[in-house]
């Protein structure tokens, strides 16, 4: 249980810190695609009887670099290339897992996460890689922000744009792989994107959006693990549903707040406001 919680908290903090750059670039679904590719890595690991986490990291890093190189070319066929890579990844994973001796229940563990079977060694790997990703995302924030916000300007500023893009690709792959034990390959993208989407409903700047998104990620992860322990639901899906609930609550709350404030402003300025029928007549003339 403690191991499960530690793993979930690290992912809850790391995934949104990386995801904000993907959202800013309008690559929200890239994590999902890399997750598909990682499944082939899991299949390779099970077939060779190696650690599936290790082989998944290697295969998804290779896949992510491939995706980045396709994106950099900016060809329209890039879309199709991505589709081939993603579906090839998931089909390859299913076939390889089928070829190995492990049963299909094993596959579900990776697709939807399985915190309870997380070993001590897994948690150590998750902690080391998670902290590395987190430090990179926080320390390089100005440079990564510049690249994601305006790539051409970043190039003219002499920033190592290509290296930074590859760094983002590699850290995405690493985050997907370490999150696969917690939320699973099919849901990992949600933890990268949903907290950011929720935070930006109420924030004005990039730095505050990042901080609020990380907070939402950690709270959803902690609450998700606790709730799933109490009512015996799968932890990964529970974490994601809680994150979406936070998104809905913030969206509804901020909309209501905006409407209320407008009403109050209108009431306050009532004397000065022009009656609406006069405005309509003036417009019609």
């Amino acid at each position: 249980m403690i191991r499960a919680l530690v793993g979930a908290l690290i992912i809850g903090l790391t995934a949104p810190a990386l995801g904000i750059y993907l959202v800013q670039r309008r690559l929200s679904l890239i994590g999902d695609g890399i997750g598909h590719v990682a499944l082939t890595g899991v299949g390779v690991g099970l077939l060779l009887q190696q650690s599936p986490v290790l082989t998944a990291v290697i295969v998804s890093v290779v896949g992510a670099i491939g995706v980045e190189l396709v994106r950099e070319r900016g060809r329209t066929s890039g879309d199709l290339a991505l589709a081939l890579l993603f579906y090839g990844g998931i089909a390859g994973g299913v076939v390889l897992v089928g070829l190995s001796d492990s049963n299909s229940g094993n596959l579900v563990q990776y697709l939807f996460g399985s915190l309870i079977t997380t070993t001590r060694a897994d948690v150590i790997v998750i902690a080391i890689l998670g902290v590395a990703v987190l430090v990179a995302m926080l320390a390089l924030r100005p440079a990564l922000f510049a690249v994601c916000n305006d790539e051409e300007y970043a190039k003219v500023s002499g920033l190592p744009v290509r290296t930074l893009n590859l760094l983002l690709a590699v850290t995405t792959a690493v985050t997907v792989t370490i999150a696969m034990r917690t939320v699973g390959l099919l849901l990992v993208s949600a933890l990268m994107v949903v907290p950011v989407a929720a935070a930006q409903q109420v924030t004005r700047g990039f730095r505050t959006t990042m901080a609020v998104a990380m907070l939402i990620g950690v709270v959803a992860a902690a609450a998700g693990v606790t709730v799933s322990g109490e009512v015996d639901t799968p932890p990964g899906a529970t974490i994601v549903i809680l994150a979406i609930a936070v998104f809905l609550a913030i969206t509804v709350g901020s909309t209501v707040w905006r409407v209320l404030r407008q009403r109050m402003n209108l009431d306050g300025n009532h004397q000065h406001a022009e009656p609406s029928d006069v405005v309509l007549q003036a417009g019609a003339r």
Binding site: I20, V23, Q24, R25, R26, S28, F145, C148, N149, D150, E151, Y153, V196, Q200, T203, R204, G205, F206, R207, T209
Partner: peptide, 12 residues
């Protein structure tokens, strides 16, 4: 830059 989804302040 293509009006990214994440808010950013003028200062940033």
């Amino acid at each position: 830059g293509a009006g990214s989804g994440v808010p950013a302040t003028v200062g940033e």
